[in-house]
Design a binder for these strands. Sequence first.
DNA 1: AATGATCGTCAATGATCGTGACTAAAAATT
DNA 2: AATTTTTAGTCACGATCATTGACGATCATT
Lengths: 157, 157
Amino acid sequence: MGTTGRGPDLGMLTGQLMRAIQGELFHTLAEQGHPDVSPRHGTVLAFLDPGGTRATDLSARSGQHKQIVGTITDELVRLGYVTRRPDPADRRAKLIVPTDRALDEVAKARAILAAIEDRYEQALGADRYTAFKDTLQQITRHQRAWNEAAAAARPAT
Amino acid sequence: MGTTGRGPDLGMLTGQLMRAIQGELFHTLAEQGHPDVSPRHGTVLAFLDPGGTRATDLSARSGQHKQIVGTITDELVRLGYVTRRPDPADRRAKLIVPTDRALDEVAKARAILAAIEDRYEQALGADRYTAFKDTLQQITRHQRAWNEAAAAARPAT
DNA sequence: AATGATCGTCAATGATCGTGACTAAAAATT
DNA sequence: AATTTTTAGTCACGATCATTGACGATCATT
């Protein structure tokens, strides 16, 4: 029983930090000319290749349903972030291609997130921050593996 | 600048870890006799005093709207986790009081989360894990403060 | 007693998510 | 070559969840 009574638990902390980072990211993006993108759009934008990606691939990468990818793509088309082009390699498929506006958004999002991390790297020192992020990555990997193992052990549908 | 190219960003990582922890928590809770509680119910259950709490306080503690607290409370009443009692100190207010079932759920949830943390404490060593969690807490605190400051700087409603 | 603030709820809306069914095209099988 | 099976994207529908405005009842303050 080591950690009992040591402040908020890991689930609470990660949830709070995620929401706070999301808050700064989208607030700053809005200030930088992208007021219409929401966390929801990340399902498409965050996994988009510069040359275009098929909806099925985006669905697999993001873990969301095809239906949702389609709806989000509709919205991003309307907002001028992506266009749909037929896939020359497969006439069933359509490539979802980022516009310059989307490339700008992605670049700015990366810069904002990098700036957040730089802030903590400077505040804590590179050593401490690197150790922190390495551990966070390691724990995340293990926890996701635990969940996959638990899901695999459950009765199949 | 600093962290570029070093794997997934902090927002992605915290989101993934939060979902993974939530997955184990509620999967295990279901196995331990609480199959009907969802993350959503945490808005009420996680902030409930043993002697009962008013909806407004739960709203303030959880950051959710009163309306949501009311809806979740309705559902928890139906599931047998809480009851509504008039607040003797204020005839407008009602105390949301946990039943034994809710107390059991909260205790089990705490134990599951503690077990998760113990797992990483053992895997990483107490020193590394303690340093990790301290840093996580510190970063979360700072990031939340950043967001509050940004929200305060925005034009008032 | 009167005024404004607070407590919990009702109602309506919008945003988001999930499921099943469908058409067209590709891939696999006979 | 013809047929079956699988895959890609979309349509339609319902379920869940968050947000907002309003309301009667009660409290606090003047």
